[in-house]
């Protein structure tokens, strides 16, 4: 048993290493673009438009949007890493290297997820560094910042894997990010507090899971949130459990990867 676990550990570290190398090799495509995008957000929304907006929840506008922009980078990059890597492996059939090997599906899943989390956090860190140029970063609760960042990256890595399983063309891996993920992220309170919204839209916003992630992340930096922190963690963890269960089911059934 110990020997077998050791072999699984080697397999897990191999997949993780492969995934990390994959996005590290093409850092110009994977790390730099989100940093440039967020820098533009800071310049336009923070420096140019922000002073006209004034304060948001008692914070300068640029400080208010900073956690949301970092979180947006973590979400999109953890998702993009797993969906593109998994679908790419399916497309060129090198997923078969893993499928014929004596690796339990849970190890394959964890390997891909770790790769997604690694890219999400790498980009998040790069964006945080660039935000130092534009904002005065405060740290209210480091534990909350790290735990929300990791859990969110995990959640969207899972979502990316499910997308990758069902994708049958490269179009399929961009449809969800474009038509679902981006709108939900923008409407998830990056640029505003939901307190500004009419009651109906405040309630409607509560159905958006990204709202919970952005608000709890913002709490970690600024100590302000529109959402109860316990509720936010519960929602994030509940989504992780659901998506993990779905992912395992898909891999065990071989949907999209076995004939």
């Amino acid at each position: 048993m110990k020997n077998r676990l050791h072999k699984y550990w080697i397999a897990y570290t191999t997949i993780t290493r492969k995934e990390v190398l994959r996005f590290s090799r093409i850092w110009v495509q994977t790390i730099i673009p989100p940093v440039v995008t967020v820098a533009l957000y800071f310049i336009i929304f923070g420096n140019l438009i922000g002073p006209r907006i004034g304060e948001m929840d008692g914070m300068s506008y640029i400080d208010f949007i900073m956690p949301g922009l970092i979180m947006m980078s973590i979400i999109t990059n953890s998702y993009a890493n797993v969906v593109s890597s998994f679908y790419g492996a399916k497309f060129s059939r090198h997923i078969e290297e893993m499928l014929v090997s004596p690796i339990p599906n849970v190890v394959i899943l964890l390997g891909f997820l770790t790769g997604g989390i690694a890219r999400g956090l790498a980009v998040g860190l790069a964006v945080t560094v660039i935000s130092l140029v534009f904002t005065n970063i405060q740290i209210h609760n480091l534990w909350v910042i790290f735990s929300v960042a990791i859990l969110t990256a995990l959640l969207f890595s899972l979502a990316g894997l499910i997308n990758g399983v069902y994708a049958t063309s490269f179009d399929d891996i961009s449809i969800i990010p474009t038509f679902v993920l981006t709108p939900l992220t923008y409407l998830g309170g990056i640029f505003y507090s939901i307190q500004l919204l009419p009651d109906f839209w405040q309630n409607a916003s509560l159905g958006n899971p990204i709202l919970y992630m952005i608000n709890s992340f913002r709490f970690g930096f600024l100590g302000i949130t529109d959402i109860n922190l316990g509720l936010a963690f519960s929602v994030i963890i509940a989504f992780i459990v659901i998506l993990f269960t779905i992912s395992m089911h898909l891999l065990n059934r071989g949907i999209g990867i076995r004939t």
Partner: peptide
């Protein structure tokens, strides 16, 4: 080749 070895749990 090294990755395939890793998938089978072969030490580095």
């Amino acid at each position: 080749i090294a990755n395939q070895g890793g998938y089978y749990g072969v030490s580095s």
